[in-house]
C-alpha cells in the first residue's frame, strides 16, 4: 500500500512533463503558502500544549483520573484504561505512551490491551484538531463542533467496549 503514493506522484510528474507544467515554480509557491499557516497555528498549539502540560504536572490530571475511575469501571472500562480515555482527546503522543504502558503492565493480548488498542484506533485527538483547524483560519465561535466531537468520541469508546466484548464471548 505504501507504494501507491509514489506511483501516483510518478504519474503526475509524467503528465506534468507532457503538459509542460512548471513543476518547480508550482511546488515552491505551494510550500511558501505553508509557512504563514505554520506561524498562525503556533499560538493555538502553545495554548493547548501549555494547558495539558500544567494539568499533568500539577497532579490535577491524576486527581481527575482517581475521581472518574470508579465511574468508568461501572460502565466497563478497566481502571488501567482511565488515563487513556481522559487524555486521548487532547494529545496523540500522550495516548501512544499510555498504550505502551498498558501493553507493558497488562500485555498486548490481555482484555485491557486489546480494548485499549481498539479505543486508540477508533478515536481522535479532538481538541487538538479543533484548535488547529479553527485556529488556522481565526474562527472564534466554534458553535456545536466540540459537543459533536465529544459525543462521537464517546460513541467510539462505547462501540469499542461492545465490539471487544462480543469478540470475547
Amino acid at each position: 500500500m505504501e507504494v501507491i503514493i509514489p506511483i501516483l506522484l510518478l504519474v503526475m510528474f509524467i503528465a506534468a512533463a507532457y503538459k509542460k507544467t512548471s513543476v518547480y515554480d508550482s511546488f515552491v509557491r505551494g510550500a511558501k503558502n505553508a509557512l504563514p499557516v505554520l506561524v498562525s497555528i503556533l499560538p493555538y498549539l502553545a495554548a493547548m500544549l501549555a494547558a495539558i502540560n500544567i494539568f499533568r504536572a500539577s497532579g490535577a490530571l491524576q486527581g481527575f483520573i482517581d475521581l472518574s475511575s470508579p465511574v468508568m469501571e461501572s460502565i466497563g472500562i478497566p481502571k488501567e484504561l482511565t488515563p487513556l480515555v481522559v487524555l486521548r482527546p487532547f494529545s496523540g503522543s500522550a495516548a501512544i505512551a499510555l498504550l505502551d504502558d498498558i501493553f507493558k503492565t497488562c500485555g498486548p493480548d490481555s482484555y485491557q490491551g486489546v480494548l485499549a488498542s481498539v479505543m486508540l484506533g477508533s478515536t481522535e485527538t479532538i481538541f487538538y484538531t479543533v484548535a488547529l483547524y479553527f485556529g488556522s483560519i481565526g474562527i472564534k465561535k466554534t458553535r456545536y463542533s466540540i459537543p459533536t466531537a465529544l459525543i462521537s468520541g464517546i460513541a467510539g469508546i462505547a462501540a469499542s467496549i461492545i465490539a471487544v466484548k462480543l469478540m470475547y464471548d
Partner: peptide
C-alpha cells in the same frame, strides 16, 4: 485481532458524528 473491532467502532463514531452534526 484488533482490526475488525477497530473498524466497527470507527464507523460507529463516524456515523454518530455526521448524525449529531
Amino acid at each position: 485481532i484488533v482490526v475488525v473491532p477497530t473498524f466497527i467502532a470507527s464507523i460507529a463514531a463516524f456515523a454518530t458524528a455526521v448524525l449529531c452534526c
